[in-house]
């Protein structure tokens, strides 16, 4: 059929039923590709073993290794304090869940305020712009100290002095500013013709937001928002400065009793157990989102 299979046997790779069979030429190509892949895998393994192995040997045989491992990697002690650290980590998890959901709602609200054009909302638009600029520019530790120690110092009637609550509020205030900006940038990247198309179909402003603008905007900012979630989990550790017994504080207490830093390493490992899978997931989401945008660009 005009197609030269290059098959030495002279048999066409298409049998009469139209079923495609790989030609001997293609089979040979696959075999040699497979061989090459196997060789690559062997080379990668060997080179990794050599490089990482020698690095490990250099570290472990260095003169300071003994005291280093005694101070940071005293595993028996680490296992002993682990329950306390995990208990403390529960506080970080709860704080992340409460702060995360509040930040999502507040951040979305402020992003919508800042992108709206309604004249009635002008004062709120100005206020939210000031708020976002302010709290993106202050180190979060300062906000935690100001809220956590400053508010109780006012001795206000009916206002809580609970450091966990105040610390959570400080985290929410700071992260809402970041997340509002991320969502706003997502809204701004939706092409204006999408709004025009929706409005010309008679959809109201809110229907357009709800069904057309926000779904596209949020899908685009999912990877940076997941990044912020990872950062939030880690930053909940900062409230330990107020005396909240989270994983960091629990590690600090154990460590200061024995002058051994293994509890800190244990706390780090506990954080990593959550953050590494989440980071991998974020990467995968980002890759998918880029693929999707490329596909749209080709259409």
């Amino acid at each position: 059929m005009g197609r030269n299979s290059g098959d030495s046997s002279g048999v066409t790779p298409y049998d009469f039923g139209g079923q495609w069979q790989p030609s001997s030429h293609e089979l040979a190509r696959r075999a040699s590709r497979k061989k090459k892949n196997n060789r690559n895998a062997i080379i990668a393994t060997l080179s990794s073993v050599v490089v990482l192995g020698s690095l490990a040997i250099v570290v472990v045989t260095s003169p300071g290794w003994k005291s280093l491992s005694d101070t940071f990697f005293a595993w028996a002690y680490g296992v002993e304090v682990l329950p306390k650290i995990i208990l403390g980590f529960g506080t970080n998890v709860v704080l992340t869940l409460i702060a995360g959901s509040s930040v999502a709602i507040l951040g979305l609200t402020i992003a919508l305020l800042r992108t709206s054009r309604s004249p009635a909302l002008t004062p709120f638009r100005i206020l939210s712009t000031i708020y976002v600029d302010l709290f993106r520019g202050i180190p979060m530790l300062l906000v935690i100290l100001l809220v956590g120690f400053g508010i109780p110092a006012l001795r206000l009637q009916g206002v809580t002095n609970n450091v966990l609550v105040l610390g959570t509020i400080a985290v929410i205030i700071t992260y809402t500013a970041y997340v509002a900006e991320v969502i706003r940038s997502g809204i701004l990247t939706v092409h204006p013709s999408q709004r025009a198309a929706a409005r010309s179909l008679g959809l109201t402003h809110f229907q357009t937001l709800r069904h057309v603008i926000l779904p596209q905007a949020l899908r685009r900012v999912t990877p940076p928002l997941l990044n912020d979630l990872v950062a939030l989990i880690k930053d909940t550790g900062l409230v330990s400065i107020l005396g909240v017994t989270d994983a960091v504080r629990a590690a600090q207490i154990s460590s200061s009793r024995t002058f051994n830093y293994t509890p800190y390493v244990m706390a780090a490992i506990v954080f990593l157990l959550i953050t590494i899978p989440l980071t991998r997931f974020t990467d995968r989401t980002l890759r998918k989102s880029i693929e999707r945008q490329n596909a749209q660009g080709n259409a």
């Binding site: 013709s193 010309s200 008679g202």
Partner: peptide, 20 residues
Amino acid sequence: VDEVRKKFGMVFQAFNLFPH
């Protein structure tokens, strides 16, 4: 405005459809 727009069917040069 919303009622009026429903009476017109408008089609643009590009980026018309909702990609999601």
